[in-house]
């Protein structure tokens, strides 16, 4: 049965500004279906974003929407969430926005485990500014600033989020919109900081410079590199070159009580602050 996206969209803004076949549209749709899954009131949701192609997403959603400065979306979002802890805050970010200029805010939002959901659309490049290399451009690939091949090693955003303390972390690709929806829904439901990475195609910028200038071949490039997390865990590092590992990196407390997470108690930040208020008022 068709999903009625109209319920959550500002229809006067559609068609959106993204290129034909852009993966961000698929992620936006997965987000809207997830909103229906969790059943939140539109008035109670704030969508926040920074700068970049992905950051234009909130403008299409019929909620309280905030399009901020480059990389800073999580800081505005943290202010909103702390001011109104009973409301829902969701952040859209691109790979450059979240892990380059906003890298500091990213790891600290994870560290606080504040009850927000971050969707990072990773298209391996800075699309809006003309296809420069980003912290997730794989080694050897060409971009408008790495015409001889990229030498900058990449971040794995999921590993980064996990190490920094996020309580739900998952990655899916735009080839699997239903999986994306499942992960985003779980992220929204998680009481804590959730990071969902959506590996997306940017054939216009990243693809064009790497012999996959159309959405179909760009999406195929993603599909060819996808390895499920369970399989990747059995493999050696040198076998995992130029791959996209998908799955749920952190799902539950069991995962978060492993020894790697030492000195990092599991509490959600707004809950912890409520206890501070109680303490201060008792004194």
């Amino acid at each position: 049965m068709a999903f009625e996206y109209e319920k959550y969209l500002r229809m006067d803004k559609i068609p959106h500004l993204w290129c034909p076949g852009c993966g961000i549209g698929v992620v936006l749709k997965a987000m809207l279906r997830s909103l229906e899954n969790v059943g939140w009131e539109k008035n109670d949701i704030a969508f926040v974003s920074g700068i970049g192609c992905t950051s234009r997403a909130p403008g299409y959603i019929d909620c309280n929407t905030l399009h901020t400065t480059h990389g800073r979306a999580l800081t505005f979002a943290t202010g909103i969430k702390m001011a109104k802890p009973d409301k829902h805050v969701v952040v859209f970010s691109g790979d450059g926005d979240a892990t380059a200029i906003g890298g500091n805010h990213f790891i600290h939002a994870c560290r606080r485990n504040i009850d927000m959901t971050l969707v990072v659309v990773n298209n391996n490049t800075y699309g809006m500014t003309g296809g420069q290399h980003s912290p997730t451009t794989p080694i050897g690939y060409k971009t408008s600033t790495t015409v001889y091949g990229n030498i900058d090693p990449t971040f794995d955003i999921c590993m980064l989020a996990k190490a920094a303390g996020a309580s739900y972390v998952a990655r899916a690709t735009v080839n699997k919109g239903k999986v994306l929806e499942k992960y985003i829904t779980k992220g929204l439901e998680n009481k804590g900081f959730s990071v969902i990475v959506a590996t997306a195609n940017c054939h216009t910028q990243f693809g064009r410079k790497n012999k996959m200038g159309d959405p179909i071949s760009s999406r195929k490039w993603i599909a060819d590199r996808e390895i499920p997390l369970e399989k990747a865990r059995e493999m050696k590092a040198d076998e995992l070159n130029d791959v996209i590992i998908t799955g749920e990196f952190i799902t539950d407390e069991q995962e978060r009580t492993r020894w790697e997470n030492y000195n990092h108690p599991i509490h959600e930040y707004t809950d912890a602050y409520k206890k501070i208020i109680e303490k201060a008022q008792k004194k």
Binding site: F3, L9, I14, W18, G23, N175, G177, K178
Partner: peptide, 8 residues
């Protein structure tokens, strides 16, 4: 097709 059409 419905899920993956980026343009609604």
């Amino acid at each position: 097709c419905e899920v993956h059409c980026p343009d609604f």
